[in-house]
């Protein structure tokens, strides 16, 4: 089974192609841009982990519909359900 969004109305693909272009983050630049003082050793240690997480996430996120809202205020069951 793979996760797919089956609830939200389908909106047309804007360009007819993939909605995501995968551009890997340069974590060294991100860290410097945000003013984080991370050593190159620390960055070397964490970059592969972040690369893998980001790559997998973006691939998964490309499958969800535009109308899906984030579960920021999380409810594990909808209010009206009593499952």
């Amino acid at each position: 089974m793979h996760f797919q969004d089956t609830r939200s109305p389908r909106l047309p693909d804007l360009a007819g192609g993939p909605r995501y272009t995968l551009v890997m983050s340069d974590w060294k630049l991100v860290a410097a841009g945000r003013g984080f003082n991370l050593t190159s050793e620390e960055l070397e240690r964490i970059s592969p982990v972040l690369d893998a997480l980001e790559s997998a996430l973006r691939s998964q996120a490309s499958a969800i519909g535009l109308m899906i809202e984030p579960a920021v205020t999380f409810q594990c069951a909808a209010e009206e359900q009593d499952s």
């Binding site: 609830r7 945000r34 998964q60 996120a61 969800i64 899906i68 984030p70 579960a71 920021v72 999380f74």
Partner: peptide
């Protein structure tokens, strides 16, 4: 690691969580 993730990635993760 958490400080370097983007806001977009976090929100996408929370959207995927719902699905």
């Amino acid at each position: 690691q958490g400080r370097l993730l983007s806001a977009t990635d976090y929100i996408q993760a929370q959207r995927l969580r719902r699905v």
